[in-house]
Design a protein around this nucleic acid. Structure first.
Length: 425
RNA sequence: GUGGCUGUAGCUCAAUCGGUUAGAGCGCUGGACUGUGGCUCCAGAGGUUGCGGGUUCAAUUCCCGUCAGCCACCCCA
């Protein structure tokens, strides 16, 4: 038996990295006033169908969808925003003080062909700011992961910005784009010919050389933005300048999800070898709540790929800060002989109750083997209990770093070790 | 979903032209050191050669299928 394709275990040697990164993420979320939300990994299929867009790749071919025993269609979440907005509506967060700032660190599921940096289950750190219309909101949300990334020390990151307009101006642009593309229809790749009718925006992202050449001469969405969208985009850019965050404007990013309006943002790393160099995607989604049947609710957010971020950290040889003290052990209790083992068993309980981290021998190997075990566990102290020690109501305490050893009375052991472990920790 | 490369011990890898008992290092267990870790030496355990089928006297080796990883697409985080 093994894990399903593209889905992996995270083993104890790896979890400290995750915990360190998560701790830093939580710290940054807190600094920006974002509170954690935990939505279920499973939603009604409609939640994603109605928001991501019927013609999006996610809905068309990447969702893990199945029927439960009651015949309902459920889907493992392919992205985080729709579920958060669903929760916002379901729990009447519109009645909370606005705007509402939320974040999550959660697994996402997409039925893609796996590759390095692309998995069927991956984790995203997402932030959502709901109930805020102004451009300042867009820049606030996006600045959070950007500052986080900078703190981690990432160097070659590119922030790309675009505006995809709104319900008023986007349809006009789509028509203009279609009109421009129609005469070139025969030169487009098969996929794009299909997209021409269904979703011409996505042709902009096509990397097929032929399509790309045609797209070069296509009208730019920025030329079709309505006054409100134009002003919004201008202020977003101005505020990126205010924070001195470098970015490039990219008229061809449209994002794979249909719910985006106005601001669309991506962050790429130049240090990732493979094709999976995008580490963040995000933007504004003012129409999403309505698509879920709720009242108009402006929102803006991002999703940051944790696995991809870790790949970049590795590629740039950057250390992940360890937020808490290492999960290492303080003490190993070695025992020789049955009476000593009984005493050791009781001692372990006392040590742990006193807040120390201690393990003992669980088989009955010789002292030599037990000391070897203590060494490999990298404990600070080994406590040795045998017949000699027991008869004197004391124990040998060996400092594993110094290689020194002394006898300590049993009734003073806990306080002795508590003090000793605290010193020079 | 399309095309390609690769799967040998827990890990990293070897095994001649298809040839008889599939090896090494690290790691693990034990011993030298009967109650004291690290260093050294010795020994041991550990394998359905990813899985299934085919060709052959004989398959880790050749062929087909399948599963998984990787690479390029598609797309995305």
């Amino acid at each position: 038996m093994e894990t399903p394709r593209g889905i992996h275990d995270i083993l104890p040697d790896e979890t400290p990295k995750w915990q360190g990164l998560e701790a830093l993420i939580r710290e940054f979320a807190a600094r920006y006033g974002y509170r954690e939300i935990r939505t279920p990994p499973l939603e009604h299929t409609e939640v994603f169908q109605r928001t991501a867009g019927e013609t999006s790749d996610i809905v068309e071919k990447e969702m893990y969808t199945f029927q439960d025993r009651g015949g309902r269609s459920l889907t493992l979440r392919p992205e985080g925003t729709a579920g958060v907005v669903r929760a916002y509506l379901e729990h009447g967060m519109a009645a909370w003080p606005q705007p509402v700032r939320l974040f999550y660190i959660a697994p996402m599921f997409r039925y893609d062909r796996p590759q390095k940096g692309r998995y069927r289950m991956h984790h995203q750190f997402g932030g959502e700011l709901l109930g805020a219309v102004l451009p300042a909101a867009d820049v606030e949300v996006l600045s959070l992961p950007i500052r986080l990334i900078q703190t981690l020390g990432l160097t070659e990151v590119m922030v790309r910005l675009n505006s995809v307009g709104d319900q008023k101006c986007r349809p006009r642009y789509i028509e203009a784009l279609r009109e421009y593309l129609r005469p070139h229809r025969d030169q487009l790749c098969a996929d794009c010919q299909r997209k021409l009718e269904v979703n011409p925006l996505r042709i902009l992202e096509c990397k097929e050389p032929a399509c790309h050449r045609i797209v070069e001469g296509a009208p730019r969405i920025t030329e079709y933005l309505c006054d409100e969208c134009r002003a919004h985009f201008e202020e977003v850019k101005q505020r990126f300048g205010l924070l001195a965050i470098p970015y490039t404007e990219d008229p061809f990013i449209v994002r794979g999800l249909d719910y985006y309006t106005r601001t669309a943002a991506e962050i790429h790393s130049g240090r990732l070898g493979g094709a999976q160099h995008q580490i963040l995607g995000g933007g504004r989604y003012d129409g999403l709540a309505e698509q879920l049947g709720g009242p108009h609710t402006p929102g803006v957010g991002f999703g940051l790929g944790i696995e991809r971020l870790m790949l970049v950290l590795e590629a740039e040889k950057l250390a992940i800060p360890t937020a808490t003290r290492a999960a290492g052990l303080d003490i190993f209790v070695a025992a020789v002989g049955a009476p000593a083992e009984q005493e050791a068993f009781r001692l372990l309980d006392r040590l742990r109750t006193a807040g120390l981290r201690a393990v003992g021998e669980t088989t009955d190997r010789g002292l030599r083997a037990q000391m070897k075990q203590a060494d490999r566990l990298s404990v600070r102290f080994a406590v040795i209990l045998g017949e000699q020690e027991l008869s004197g109501r004391q124990a040998g305490v060996r400092d594993m770093r110094a290689g020194t050893q002394q006898d300590v009375p049993l009734d003073q052991l806990v306080s002795y070790l508590t003090t000793a472990a605290a010193n020079g920790a």
